[in-house]
């Protein structure tokens, strides 16, 4: 029952992405409205899939690679919808929908290996990782958007998209808050991971990349707070940080011994 639900939600996210892209080309209320409706529908079906999964197998699947990616995709969608309902940002939908699809597809492709270690520590570690990555994914999308808008404003060449793009400050503020939230979760993830790693003594590429990503985000936040760094430079660092996070996940799922690295 779970798989058809996930497939349905995947289709809805794809269709929503199509609507948002259509909106970028021609800003009809129609495509914006349907983009949101499809995303909400997809999120509801996705929620049904997650609930079904939970009732069938408990929380365990969510701490596995496939389940955790699925949960992360759900959090990204709901995070975006929360922002979008507060202040419509359909252009961000055009970034986020494909990103969600990109997260949800591998959720089905990765082997469903069982975790080696169970317990509250693992749940916290994976849970904070999922929340942090979802926040970083949204801040990544917003930073991309910021760079797009900023480039147009700076070059004084406001293209056809200009009227449809939100203000620079709004995008920057949202990206900053999500980066802060992601950083808190990432710090917790690393601290919990470090705790488990000490038990096994393992340190691999994934962990190293996580440290570098943490350091990158720490630079973004510190530079902003201490030297007022914001705008383009900060956006590029946020992009770099998220790519490192993606690297962490690639390292995680390419690892032959998933359980061993926790």
């Amino acid at each position: 029952m779970v798989v058809p639900f996930v497939h349905l939600s995947l289709l809805a996210y794809l269709a929503a992405g199509g609507c948002y892209l259509a909106w970028l080309l021609k800003p009809h209320d129609f495509s914006q409205r349907w983009g949101r409706r499809l995303l909400v529908s997809g999120a509801l079906v996705h929620l049904a899939a997650l609930v079904t999964e939970y009732t069938q197998s408990g929380a365990d699947p969510f701490w596995r690679p496939g389940g955790s990616l699925s949960l992360m995709a759900f959090l990204i969608v709901t995070g975006f919808l929360a922002l979008d309902f507060k202040r419509p940002i359909p252009v961000v939908g055009a970034f986020i929908s494909p990103l969600v699809v990109a997260v949800l597809v591998p959720a089905h492709l990765v082997p469903d290996r069982a975790s080696a270690v169970y317990g509250a520590g693992l749940v916290l570690h994976v849970g904070t990782a999922i929340l942090g990555t979802a926040a970083f994914a949204l801040s990544f999308g917003l930073s991309l958007l910021f760079l797009l808008v900023e480039r147009q404003v700076k070059a004084r060449r406001l293209g056809r998209l200009a009227a449809r793009l939100p203000s620079l400050e709004l995008v920057e503020r949202l990206a900053w808050r999500l980066t802060l939230a992601g950083f808190v979760f990432l710090s917790s993830t690393i601290a919990l991971g470090k705790f488990f790693a000490q038990r096994t003594g393992a340190l691999d590429l994934k962990t190293a990349l996580a440290y570098v990503a943490w350091f990158t985000y720490a630079v973004v936040i510190n530079a902003r707070l201490m030297a007022g760094w914001r705008g383009r430079r900060a956006a590029f660092l946020v992009l770099a940080g998220f790519l490192l996070i993606v690297g962490v996940y690639l390292g995680l799922y390419r690892s032959s011994a998933y359980g061993a690295i926790i």
């Binding site: 808008v149 404003v153 406001l158 200009a162 793009l165 203000s167 620079l168 400050e169």
Partner: peptide, 9 residues
Amino acid sequence: DLTRKIFGD
């Protein structure tokens, strides 16, 4: 309009 593009509200 341009000021709004930068600062929003």
